[in-house]
Amino acid sequence: MNFTVMLAQLAGGMVKSVEIFVLTLLFSLPLGLVIAFGRMTKNGLICNITKIYISIMRGTPLMLQLIVVYFAPYYVFGMRIGSAYRFIAVILAFSLNYAAYFAEIYRSGIQSMPVGQYEAAYILGFSKTQTFTRIIMPQVIKRILPPVTNETITLVKDTSLAFALAEVEMFTTAKQIAAKETTIMPLMVAGVFYFIFNYIVAWTMEYFEKRLDYYR
């Protein structure tokens, strides 16, 4: 197999990795906010449920979660698992897992806001929703950008875990070629791909951080 063919195959795997990455962010970023609200509510039941949810998601391996999500329809509901479900299961498991991490980042960001901001907004007559969307959230976003960047970079590397459900993303492709051709070259190239991927992610996040640099 020549180098160009290998690159083409890896690029195919890369597309899958990028798909997992983008879809996971798309679902987990907003879902995290919902979970963060659940975690902060005064309703004891909801608060405890989200607490347990977060601790399970953060306390067990993502690989195990992938497997559980994949087999749950069969074991819990006795449903037949179609092959189309494999990719859905990957996105579902990744989103549920990352939402838990994002929820905790949001929560710490929201709780780090000084009470004075809420009180000033209250005295000026802003409603609770206005206070959150106009005063609190814009400042929270600036505060949480660095930890969100960290999670996002971890996600790029975590996409390789999709192999657990035999979803052929970049790393799986690299391993398959490596085994067939008995060379570690494809794995090295995959490493370079991941690095470039993350470089772009980090660069993008830095751009956002700079955009928010206009105030302190």
């Binding site: 000084p114 004075g116 901001q117 009180e119 000033a120 005295i123 005063i135 814009p138 400042q139 600036k142 105030y215 302190r216």
Partner: peptide, 11 residues
């Protein structure tokens, strides 16, 4: 109400 610590909106 004017606060001791101003509580302006920094953003």
């Amino acid at each position: 109400l004017v606060f001791q610590q101003f509580h302006l909106f920094p953003h």
